[in-house]
Write a protein that binds this DNA or RNA. Structure first.
Lengths: 333, 333
DNA sequence: CTGAAAGCGCTTACAG
DNA sequence: CTGAAAGCGCTTACAG
């Protein structure tokens, strides 16, 4: 492995000088010297060692991205957004899948601390609380941004889940639905509780009472949406005519279960999702949903983190707009 | 930031001793001393600096994963597989999206060299050739594994695309189809050329000639499958009755274009894909395809890389099995 | 069983 | 404009 020393020797200068041309330092250097150094670097194929540099400068130009599962179609868009901005800004991204496991989250937190990442972006909930618990932020003062609302004091980049859920349910109400079920995310999720609030607000806005039998808890996974249908009144008096699922995956699971029971969507039961994952527009019927700007969430989170790393002030909360995406699963053609 | 020196002072021992307990070294240490050191580490919240360690040991326990685009549904499964094994083996993964851009690939290669990653996994083609060109492997001897067939001498983890494509087309032939079009990947892709070979072999196996009019080049993206339909004979003499697309995304694009033209799938035209992305089983009709074990490709690639990093011999090529996944887009119910 | 010291490959304050 | 030297935080061969 060729080092800065080799380059210095080869060019007949000191390592100080090599370091200066390497870093385009302000320090004046004669053009001739600079040329010699550049030539030596080229000839030797020198590539500076980032670890040595980090040790000096106390920065790694690396960030950690902690999420539940990249294979969940909600996340790739976020990851891509983060990565694009990171790359532009000269940062590298370490990907950490936690499956929302506390243990795995803690392990990653430790590794990220050891690697001295400059910052961390959290998404998918849960992890944040664990992290605060482990004194991750207090002790190390690692700059951190969270995608989604959370209970801590870290900068957040989010959408207004309550408002968006309310709009989604109002869409169903405006279509004449009155028995509207909701399949929620896990009770511990702020996202789920916000979306549930939106559901309640929408009903309250019409002076309607919430029927607890129409609220079924899921876990944001396809399977839980599928199974939720077992627990909902589908026929007879009190039967539902619409479902608002807290995310697309559960909505799609529910639609599948409904179709297997011979129920038409949206003819018998309208279904509304949340997220607008790519899948939503490919299935039949195409899923009406709330479009969450995932790529932009990633982009914005990384921009906020970069600001933080540059020592600048950042807003405690950045809220991006969602958009009601009405497709075929709520509208009878 | 607390360092090993602080711990040593706090515990009243030398940094040598602290380092020894930190690394569970073979070197004998008295239980009492060990306890004192452990206590000091705990009290001070000490977290060793990986950069300093890397500088000494000349290993970073970090690998780079280079792929075209994590937002393409083919890749998350691979990434997850790589990450799971990496995590178990104590490695961290840097994610690099190249969009198959040579420039972006080169940039990443440089960054990964600077960061002194222990190894690299390539997937998505193209990049490998660029990398060889930049002397990435020769100069730095960075252990590298490629997912997919390639022209270099690097260890590969792949499926047998030719065989699998042949089976897919034979499935169509066995259904009675004789005018079978194929929508290929880019001509430069080894994957695409292998799948095209399989198509040819299948036809040749029946003594049939290949009609060049039925071969349309795409680029593995949804849009190119959609547009390919414009260039195919859909009605009248010489019309096709089936399509074999080189991946699911293009197959789904083609299906959409066919449906917009009022053609039934599979009634008028059967469609076969390749990959078995999650989307394939959600669309209507469900897509018949070749199941590629993406997660296992990732797992296996990382296992091979870990072997390489452990200094052990690895097979030049590891081939995983595909499976014909017959669903609704080729079978009339 | 314990530790002093050299060294990994860089950056930079200081001196000239 | 140039460079000698200290130091970033670790590991480990060597000595005791």
């Amino acid at each position: 492995m060729v080092t800065i020393k080799d380059v210095a020797r080869h060019a007949g200068v000191s390592v100080t000088t090599v370091s200066r041309v390497l870093n385009n330092s302000q320090h004046p250097i004669s053009p001739a010297t600079k040329q010699r150094v550049l030539a030596a670097i080229e000839e030797l194929g020198f590539c500076p060692n980032a670890a040595a540099r980090s040790l000096q400068l106390n920065e790694t130009r690396t960030i950690g991205l902690i999420l539940p599962d990249i294979a969940n179609p909600y996340y790739p868009g976020i990851v891509r957004g983060v990565e694009d901005v990171a790359h532009e800004s000269g940062y590298t991204v370490i990907l950490c899948n936690t499956d929302r496991s506390r243990e795995r989250t803690q392990e990653y937190l430790r590794v990220l601390r050891e690697k001295r990442v400059d910052g961390v972006i959290f998404t998918g909930g849960g992890a944040v609380e664990d992290a605060s618990q482990s004194h991750f932020f207090d002790q190390e003062r690692i700059a951190t941004v969270v995608i989604g609302r959370h209970r801590g004091k870290l900068p957040a980049v989010q959408v207004n889940n309550t408002l968006a859920a309310r709009e989604a349910v109002e869409h169903l109400l405006s279509l004449g639905h009155r028995r509207i079920a909701t399949i929620t995310g896990p009770a511990t999720s702020t996202t789920a509780s916000d979306r549930l609030d939106g559901y309640r607000c929408a009903l309250a806005g019409r002076g309607m009472k919430v029927d607890p039998l129409l609220i079924v808890e899921g876990n944001f996974e396809f399977e839980s949406g599928y199974q939720a249908i077992d627990r909902l009144p589908l026929r007879g008096p009190g039967a539902i005519t619409a479902i608002f699922a807290h995310n697309d995956l559960m909505a799609i699971g529910a639609m599948k279960a409904l179709q297997e029971r011979g129920l038409q969507v949206p003819g018998d039961i309208a279904v509304m999702g949340f997220d607008n994952i790519p899948l939503a527009s490919f299935i039949t019927p195409q899923l009406s949903t709330v479009a969450v700007p995932v790529y932009d969430l990633g982009v914005t989170a990384m921009k906020v983190l970069a600001e933080l790393l540059a020592g600048r002030e950042v807003p405690p909360v950045t809220t991006l707009a969602t958009k009601l995406q009405v497709r075929d699963s709520t509208i009878i053609k």
